[in-house]
Structure formats: C-alpha cells, structure tokens
C-alpha cells in the first residue's frame, strides 16, 4: 500500500523581497505511513511550515513530487485537516459558528452542524464560550477553537503546526493526551510540527529532524514507546531519555547553525 504522505526530492524556492530566490527546502524526502503519527522538529526557519503547506496543497513544490494517498497533490484536498501556526479562526464568527464552519462548507444542514460543533467545543474545553467572538478569547482558547474547527471534519490526514505552543503546561498535557486518544480512535495520519523535542517524542511514532535552512532531512528516529501513552508520565521512562539524547545530539548542531547564522545577519 502506498504511504499516506510522500515527499520525493522536494525543493521549494520563494521569491524574496529583494527579488532573488530563497531555497526554503532542498531535496526533502520523507514518507508518513497510513495511521502513523509523525513529528517534525527543526530549528526556526528551517521550512517546517513550508512542508505542511506543500502537503496541504496550498503551495506547489518548485521541484519534486508531493503525494497524498499515492496521488500527486494538485489542489487542496478534502481529506486534509490543517491547524495553522498563526491564528486562523474567523474573527467575525462566534466560537460556535467557527467550529461549525467545516461541516457547513461540506453541505451539512445548520442544526446538525451546530450540534456536532457543540460536542467538539466541549471536547476542547470551551463549553460556555459558544457565543464569544475570537477577540474575546485568550490566545490559548483561540488555539483550542482552531483545533475543534479542524478536528470536527475528521480528516484522514492531519497537519498540525505547533498547535500547543500557546498553551500553559497543564492544559498542554491535557490536550496532548486528548489528541492521542482522538488519534487512536480515528487512526488518521498525522504530521505534527513542534519546537519541543519532548513533545515530539511523547506523541509520535517517528521523529523527523530537519536541518537548518534550506531544510532537508537530517535524521529519522523510531520511537518505540508502548501505547496507549500518558504524556505526563512517559517522560520519566529510561527509554524516553535515551531517545531524547540520541535525537538531541542531531538537533543541537542544527539549532546552533541556525543561531550562529541569525547572530551573523544581525551584526
């Protein structure tokens, strides 16, 4: 069976404001199997968000192929859910209307869409805030509304770009466990971008480390921790620290490269 997601020698260039081409990704190669939870880590600016944009079909690759379900991606795919790194809830819709947007777009009748939305609002812990507008919510609450807005469509492919980085540690752990539970029920294929290596290991089957830009795969690591996992406790297992050490050795070099570069460009 074809992998759920496959990137083959993908290169992505952007036009910079000065008119030159900037290579954000170079010869990126990786695949996500059906039902697999894959985490992507890498230093800032290495092209993680760009990778998700390519998979979602929002951006075309400059070279190489992006395949979803074995077929090349030509446009936005209905089976893909995407939680953006920045706020993407609609400011003019209430929480309820925001969460119900996906089903409404997909032709589900209003009453039914709202019932499902209420259910999802409860799951992300926003009950009682249905009538609020985004500007009346905290940053973390907006993020949870965005999560509900995506998950309600039950996507077969789930792309998440640092979805929990705006949350406090407790809420974050809660949401991570909730996500794992949802995922084990739906068995969607997940690409989860994060800055946080601990989070990546706690959640994923596999961790992909991307090099400092232009991004390419530095290493891929299996995480053979048993499931179901409890994110709060799994960090204390010896196997967890071993994997952490192994990946961190790779990641540290890239983070340093990225940091040195940004220092140089400032001075």
């Amino acid at each position: 069976m074809a992998p759920a997601i496959e990137l083959r020698h993908v290169t992505k260039r952007f036009l910079t404001p000065s008119g030159t081409a900037y290579t954000a990704l170079r010869e990126l190669d990786f695949a996500v199997q059906d039902g697999e939870f894959c985490a992507v880590v890498g230093p800032t600016g290495c092209g993680k968000s760009t990778t998700l944009a390519l998979i979602s079909g929002l951006e075309p690759p400059s070279e190489g192929d992006v395949l979803v379900g074995g077929a090349p991606v030509r446009s936005v795919n209905r089976d893909v859910g995407y939680v953006f790194q920045v706020d993407a809830v609609f400011p003019w819709k209430s929480v309820l209307d925001n969460v119900a947007t996906g089903p409404r777009f997909r032709g589900i009748e209003r009453r039914q869409a709202e019932d499902r939305a209420r259910d999802w609002i409860k799951r992300v812990g926003l009950s009682g805030f249905e009538r609020y507008y985004p500007h009346q919510l905290s940053g973390g609450m907006r993020k949870r509304a965005a999560l509900a807005q995506t998950l309600i469509n039950e996507p077969r492919i789930l792309l998440m770009d640092e979805p929990f980085s705006a949350l406090d540690v407790q809420t974050r752990t809660l949401m991570e466990n909730e996500l794992l539970q949802l995922w084990s029920a739906t068995r969607a294929s997940v690409v989860f971008v994060t800055h946080d290596l601990e989070e990546a290991i706690a959640l994923a089957d596999r961790v992909v480390v991307i090099t400092a830009g232009p991004g390419t795969v530095k290493g891929v690591y299996r995480v053979d921790l048993p499931r179901p996992r409890n994110v709060a406790e799994i960090r204390f297992q010896p196997e967890f620290s071993r994997i952490y050490q192994e990946i961190w050795n790779d990641l540290r070099d890239e983070v340093l490269v990225s940091y040195e570069r940004s220092k140089r460009s400032v001075s």
């Binding site: 209905r78 953006f84 993407a88 609609f90 996906g102 777009f105």
Partner: peptide, 21 residues
C-alpha cells in the same frame, strides 16, 4: 491570506469563500 487558506482547507467553494471570508 491565512484565513483564505483556512477556509479552503475547511472545504469552502469559491462562492463560500466570497460570502464567509
């Protein structure tokens, strides 16, 4: 642009894109 991208992902048609976003 992110709102447009989000609406596309959520399944908006061109008309829904105009009226909802």
């Amino acid at each position: 642009r992110v709102l447009i991208a989000n609406a596309r992902i959520l399944g908006a048609s061109e008309r829904q894109l105009s009226t909802h976003v």
